[in-house]
């Protein structure tokens, strides 16, 4: 049981570390689009790590199937809905006229859609 407990703690710690990385990125990245990129760090491995840890904890320590299923549902919802929102925010920002200060290395979207 102790080994399992260590695995659970490790999973949650790894999730927290990636969430921290994402937060630092959101605060320090130079432009809107790069900030969005950093935020996906939080919503993928951050959430997956914490959810996996919570799932194992709910199964083996609390022995509560309802909690386990809710954790799985939370993980699946974040994983499936997050990209849709990220994509919509990125495209909305771009269409609205947000541009990075530094010129982008390549910008096919502007080439094809900007008049």
């Amino acid at each position: 049981m102790t080994a399992l407990r260590i695995v659970i703690d490790l999973l949650i710690a790894v999730g927290a570390i990636f969430a921290l990385a994402g937060t630092i990125g959101v605060n320090k990245m130079p432009d809107t689009f790069s900030r969005m990129q950093a935020s996906t760090c939080t919503s993928t491995l951050g959430v997956v790590g914490v959810c996996l840890g919570a799932l194992l904890y709910a199964i083996f320590f609390k022995q509560d199937p309802a909690t386990a299923i809710k954790v799985v549902v939370i993980g699946l919802l974040v994983i499936t809905i997050n990209p849709v929102g990220a994509h919509a925010i990125m495209k909305g920002a771009y269409r609205h006229g947000v541009r990075p200060d530094k010129e982008m290395k390549i910008d096919d979207f502007r080439r094809d859609f900007d008049e």
Partner: peptide
């Protein structure tokens, strides 16, 4: 497209 967006570092516009 969603898988690409979920991977940090790339977002589909």
């Amino acid at each position: 497209a969603n898988s690409i967006t979920l991977t940090p570092g790339t977002i589909t516009l």
